[in-house]
Every structure is written in structure tokens, then in C-alpha cells.
Design a protein around this nucleic acid. Structure first.
Lengths: 260, 260
DNA sequence: TCAAGATGCCACAAAATACAACATATTAAC
DNA sequence: GTTAATATGTTGTATTTTGTGGCATCTTGA
């Protein structure tokens, strides 16, 4: 790739995402850290972007990125994400919902090649699009400012045209009788459809979600094939889960022996 | 192979791909590196392409936006954006395409209240969502990494369910006979549909787009009600535009007197 | 506060490319 | 066919770009 091409690509990516770290750029372009740093210095000199510690900011955007939410249980979510993503081989098609845990799945999927991704999360889309020959399809719909997700009839209508190898969905809560629950109806509807639209349907949820309630029941829990979490659930919860034909994967230290 | 044949082949390849390295050219043509270099020097001298270290860039196809050019017309685009956005009142519904000029329209629209926005641009979506009680609908589709736009049948299918007060669309080029042109078929199709899906259909284009060509003709130019630019077009272009029932708005200093 | 890890920065090495000079091949004109 | 003109290939050196490693500096989290 030509130097100028690389530089305008960097500019475009930074402008599109609002900001970009050198490490992220390095993952996409196969050049050394120093080269990128030199490119950023040059571009910053021409006032095409603003250089910061570790990356660059776009001059285009007046509003900063959608605020990064305070991550609770960040370590647990990372571990869950790694384990869940390990199910996915190169070239697979994957549905990814909007959730902080699912985003950790996407982090690990950065290492995969040639994925076909369906998601309603703008953040996940930005992360995976244009990377390792991935094809990313963003579901349409009304944008929720709070988390950068698209929702609504448009999203479900579009998703209904597709079917994938894997679906990864977070849960607002998992009730004591093993229902997956969400906070809004639209969210619940989309998540239910996502789980129906893949051969392997995975719910990711850290332990804080167990034995709790949320207002909306996500349909078709029977379709869930895997539940990935970070701690073995307490006995009643475990019993409720055991009654379902799903595989429980626990991400800390020694993974649970597989059932099925 | 004759020299001229080879040179026009190189020009064609560069224009098709947007850029080409000498090594790539060498792989296709069985001639020495020096010959290619000399060809490129000659072609660059005739302004048929731009030579860079290691290869050449197309002049025609400013599609993989050459960052420098983007910066050169930045002021013009800002002015166009302000003028175009001035058409829009609070509470209106607006369709916004993906383009750097349309993004300047969005900048000004930040000051509006309660807009309903339809867009296929992730950047515009991030800018307007969650602001001033706006409702933002992101069109679904396959994500183009280069500009963060969604395109394809999903996008057109979703848009076809809506109709807005305004549509703002950029142009890849405006041909001498006043066709709006774009670089890819999918882009052209979506832009055409956008212009059909609003009562007031606005094309924004800085002067550098006039009297140029791009590969795809955007349909339904007749539906365009306004063309916003930064300089009065040259006489032949102006004549071609005058034959159409559209209002020409020029953004520098004193806006053109309104016609119609 | 510290320590560890990430990042910045510098100098030099390595690689790729540009350029110039000359040799060879091809073309065109006669 | 010969010859001059032009084009192409080859070679060697200069220049530019990129990579690498060492070390300083910053950030972050305990």
C-alpha cells in the first residue's frame, strides 16, 4: 500500500470513528507502530487530525464518542468474552447484540478472519468493519443514544432475512426459573429473534445477572444452546438451568466440564 | 505491446483502482520497473495521474478521499452546509446521505430541535442522536469501512418505508449535461431513492464537482428541488442547470437571488 | 506514592524506491 | 538491409521510507 493511501485511510478512519488508538490502526494496517506514529505526526501537522497520547482525535466531530459507560465486572466480562468467542472459527457468520459483554466477545473476534457479522451495535460495527476481510451488516432502526444501538421494527425486519452460524446476546437478567429477561420490549423482541436466527445461540451474562428479574421476557429461550458466564450459578439457579438443553460454560480459571 | 498501449492501460488501471503501486503494475505488464517509472513520469506530466513514491494515484477518482483535497474545500463545504441547513426548520424530518458536505449540513442541524433524521452515515448518526430531542433512524445494510456508510438492498428497503420533508445528498460529480453522478451503483441507487423520498430534495456539491464525470448516473434528477454549491457554475454548466426546474443556491458571501 | 506497562522519541539499520548513466533492443525511415 | 532515432533494460548509487531496539516519559491502578 502506498504511503499516501495509508495516510488518507488513517484520516478517514479517524474521522469516521472520532478517535483511534495507534494499536487499533496497527491491527488494521500491517505496518509498524513507528510508521503510524510518523503518519500521525505528519497528518497532525497538516491539521487533518489531532494527535494525542497513544492515538489521534478527529477534528470533524464536535460531540465526543458516545460516552463509555462505567464498566462493572469488567474482568469477568472480558473472560466471558474470550470464552464465548472461542466457539467461533474463521469465516463464520455471527450475530452480535448490543451489550457490554457482547462487546468483549467482539474484542476477541478481532483476531478472526473473514467473518460475516450482523449487529445492531454501532460500536461493534466500528470495531469489526474493514478488518480482516470481515463483512459487517448493521441492522437498521431507531438509534438509542444511550448505547448506540438500533432497535425497532426496522431492525427485526432486516434481521429476519438472515440466518447465521452464531448469535451472541447479553441478558438484562436471568430469572430464577431460567428466563432470559430484558428491560424494554423492543430490546427483548430483537434479542429473541437473534437467538432464533442462528444455529448456535449463545447468551452471555456475568454472575450478577443470575436470579434477578427484568420487565420483559425474551422469547424462545429453548433455542439457546450455550450460556457463558463467569461463576457457577447458585444451586437453585443451576437446577433451573439443568432442566434446559443448553450447555453452561464458566469462564473463570477452570472451565466447567462440558455437558450437553 | 506498444508503448502508448501500455500507457493507456496503466492509466485505465490506475483510474479503475484509484491507485496502483509500481510493483503491482509490474506484475501485470511484463516490463521493467524503470519503464513503468518512466511511463508514470510521462503520464503525470500530462496530468493523467498523480505520481507518488512507489506508485501512482488517480485524479479522476477522488473516491478514496484524498485527504488533502478534502481539506482544501473545507471552507466551501462548511458554507454550503450552513446555507443548505438553513432550509430546515425545527421539528422537520430530514434524510441525510453519507458525504463530507452533507456532514457539514448535519453540523448546522445540531442547532435544530426535535428533528426526525434518516441517514446511512454512522458519523452523522453519532452526531445527531441524543441531541435536542432528535429521533435518528439509521438505515441498515452492509457497512462500508472507508466511510462508515451502510449500503445495499437493506438500506433501500428500509428507506422505502419512509418519506421526509427534506433530503440532502452529495454528488460524486455533476456532469456537463447536469446529471448527478456517483461512484458505485449501490450508492447511486440509494441516493436516487433518497431524493425521491422527500418533498424537498437538495443536492449539495462544491464547485470541484461541476462538469466532471463519475461512473454511475443517479436516477430521478427531475426530483431535485435545490442545488447548493459554493461558486456560480461556468456558463455551459449554468445553462444545463437552468433547463431544470431546480433552485440554485450559491453559498459564498451574497447568496444567489432565488429563482422560480 | 510507586511500579508496571504503554507510549513517545531518537538513532541507526534495512529495505524499497528514485534517479542517472550507459548498454541493448526495437522501431521507423530511407 | 542499414541506419538513426527512440524505447527499453541494466547497473550502480543516492534518496526516501520503514523497521528495530534502546531508553525516556507518560499513564494507570494498586
Amino acid at each position: 500500500m502506498l504511503a499516501e493511501q495509508r495516510q488518507s485511510l488513517i484520516t478517514a478512519m479517524v474521522n469516521q470513528r472520532g478517535s483511534l488508538s495507534i494499536t487499533e490502526i496497527q491491527r488494521k494496517l500491517k505496518v509498524s507502530r513507528e510508521t503510524i506514529r510518523r503518519d500521525l505526526l505528519l497528518l497532525a501537522d497538516r491539521n487533518l487530525l489531532r494527535k494525542t497520547h497513544g492515538g489521534a482525535l478527529s477534528l470533524e466531530r464536535s460531540e465526543p464518542e458516545i460516552a463509555v459507560r462505567e464498566e462493572i465486572n469488567a474482568d469477568a466480562k472480558r473472560a466471558i468474552g474470550r470464552l464465548a468467542a472461542s466457539l467461533v472459527p474463521d469465516g463464520a457468520s455471527v450475530i452480535l447484540a448490543t451489550s457490554s459483554t457482547v462487546q468483549r466477545v467482539a474484542d476477541t473476534l478481532l483476531a478472526r478472519q473473514g467473518l460475516t457479522v450482523f449487529t445492531n451495535s454501532i460500536a461493534i460495527c466500528s470495531k469489526l468493519a474493514g478488518h480482516n476481510k470481515n463483512r459487517v451488516y448493521l441492522l437498521g432502526g431507531e438509534v438509542q443514544a444511550i448505547n448506540g444501538a438500533t432497535l425497532g421494527r426496522d431492525a427485526t425486519a432486516m434481521l429476519s432475512h438472515y440466518f447465521a452460524d452464531f448469535a451472541f446476546v447479553g441478558a438484562g437478567a436471568i430469572s430464577p426459573n431460567a428466563w432470559v429477561m430484558d428491560f424494554t420490549r423492543e430490546e427483548g423482541e430483537l434479542h429473541g429473534l437473534m437467538l432464533q436466527s442462528a444455529r448456535t445461540a449463545v447468551v452471555v451474562a456475568d454472575h450478577s445477572k443470575f436470579s434477578r428479574y427484568a420487565p420483559v421476557r425474551v422469547g424462545n429461550l429453548e433455542k439457546v444452546t450455550h450460556l457463558v458466564t463467569d461463576r457457577p450459578p447458585d444451586p437453585p439457579m443451576a437446577a433451573a438451568l439443568a432442566a434446559l438443553p443448553l450447555e453452561l460454560l464458566v469462564a473463570d480459571g477452570q472451565p466447567q466440564p462440558e455437558r450437553k
